[in-house]
Design a protein around this nucleic acid. Structure first.
Length: 416
RNA sequence: GGAGGGGUUGGGGAGCGGUCAAACCCAUCAGACUGUAAAUCUGACGCUUCGGCUUCACAGGUUCGAAUCCUGUCCCCUCCA
């Protein structure tokens, strides 16, 4: 791990991206000689990737920045199987249409973070459906099958854990690792790809690909994995009560995305800045050393930087402005979730409880009443004292009513 | 195929004829303290027109009364073959 020569690996090391790597010295030598191609595979399990995948995407970005060629592999083919790694249950099988649709959604985030094209260090996107969809069973088995022993496959975590927990592992899923191994070899042949990266749960799959390519084609390929990113209190990152933190605007508005980062725990700020932003290391060291409430400045920078990367500079600015307006001035920022209600209904008088539900700040009347009872409900920053309060048009402030549930959840109501 | 054990409110897990909307833990939400942090403390945590109403796998039944008893169905687990 010492004295790495290639810029890419230096960056990765410095920013704590590396969990495991195969033959790091040789890889370093190769990468410092000249540009290489490396890939990461993404399953098309949803219309957007979430922050759990952001580490991988950042690696591809650094790869490109340091002059190498990123290959984004869309798992159009493998998504039809479902990766059993790290899961106790089989994934629900998806139809081709859903996979297509998901792929289109996921593509947008890569367009945002990587430069695609035909130049040497331009990123390319490939779909493993290209070579997997039309595989013929018997020839494939004869070509690839002899290189895998069941004995060895049983030792990989994705298989072993499932079996140890006595959870079923179908033959379908059992094939996943073979197909991913085949992918690596295929990419090595088609795009001269020599490195596969991925999350730590992909280690087994990556190693399989390397071995297959070595045996079939005599190629020396490399693998590198990132650690599983958890929060300081040991939870999987990016899973909040309200759902996953999606990278696409369509799945999660920029303001909420920004807030997620702004609410990072003190202990995670430095690590997240290293992994999810391109802020220079000196600056990060300065920011993470901030004590007391000053660390909030670092959190704002974190939120701004990540939002800028994933959603663009304008979205980041707007989100920050809204947060500033809402939390510091105690006003109402434009980016807050907004709902419209008919002006006539408001004229007639609207019960607070119903209004909170309309604004999405409560799922049931009981829930809102509880909120009011506990003193967490505010209307235009004044505590709602009674659940019988009737809100009328004179509550409008610059044409809008600000509702708050607790300190962090705010919404605007406008009359139409 | 045989013998047992079980399916309870987001998760775990009590309850085993009435006092059960159902202990407790976790998660979640709110309040206090702070810094839109963590930790801690407090409270809440099915729905409701506040009269009640719908929940304890599903469908029936016994009973004044069932999550609790009986019958059937579906699912899960353990052991034997």
């Amino acid at each position: 791990m010492t004295n790495l020569k290639s810029e890419f690996l230096q960056v990765l090391t410095e920013r704590d991206f590396i969990h495991q790597a195969t033959d790091l010295e040789a890889l370093d030598a190769k990468m410092s000689e000249g540009p290489i191609s490396a890939y990461i595979g993404f399953d098309c399990t949803a219309r957007s990737l979430h922050v759990g995948s952001l580490v991988q995407i950042m690696m591809l970005r650094w790869l490109q920045k340091t002059g190498h060629k990123p290959i984004v592999l869309m798992g159009g083919g493998t998504s039809k199987i479902g990766d059993p790694s790290g899961r106790d249950e089989s994934r629900q099988l998806m139809t081709d249409e859903i996979i297509e649709d998901n792929m289109a959604g996921i593509r947008t985030i890569f367009d945002q973070l990587l430069t695609f094209g035909d130049d040497a260090s331009d990123a390319v996107m490939v779909n493993n459906g290209e070579w997997l969809d039309d595989l013929r069973y018997i020839p494939f088995l004869r070509e690839i099958g002899p290189h895998f022993t069941i004995n060895r496959m049983m030792t990989f975590d994705s298989v072993k854990l499932r079996l140890e927990r006595e959870q079923p592992l179908t033959f379908l899923e059992f094939n996943y690792m073979i197909l991913q191994a085949y992918d690596f070899m295929e990419l090595a042949g088609r795009h001269n790809c020599v490195l596969q990266m991925g999350g730590s749960d992909q280690w087994g799959n990556i190693v399989n690909g390397m071995e297959l390519a070595r045996r079939k084609a005599g190629k020396h390929l490399f693998g590198l994995t990132t650690p599983l990113i958890t929060t300081a209190d040991g939870k999987k990152m990016g899973k909040t009560a309200s759902g996953a933190i999606w990278l696409n605007e369509e799945q999660l508005p920029a303001y909420d995305f920004w807030q997620f980062w702004r609410n990072t725990q003190d202990a995670d700020v430095g690590r997240f800045l290293r992994l999810f932003t391109e802020v220079p290391m000196d600056e990060i060291r300065r920011l993470e050393a901030l004590g007391g409430s000053e660390i909030n400045d670092a959190k704002v920078i974190l939120a701004n930087e990540v939002t800028k990367l994933c959603r663009g500079a304008d979205a980041a600015k707007a989100a920050e402005a809204t947060a500033r307006e809402t939390f510091i001035k105690g006003g109402a920022g434009a980016d807050l979730p907004t709902v419209s209600i008919p002006a006539a209904a408001l004229q007639a008088g609207f019960n607070v409880v119903d209004l909170f539900i309309e604004a999405g700040l409560g799922a049931s009347k009981s829930e809102v009443r509880r909120l009011i009872k506990q003193g967490g409900a505010k209307l235009n920053d004044a505590k709602v004292e009674s659940e019988d309060l009737v809100v009328s048009a004179d509550a409008l402030n610059d044409g809008q009513i600000k509702l708050s549930a607790g300190k962090k959840r705010h919404a605007l109501v406008k009359a139409e």
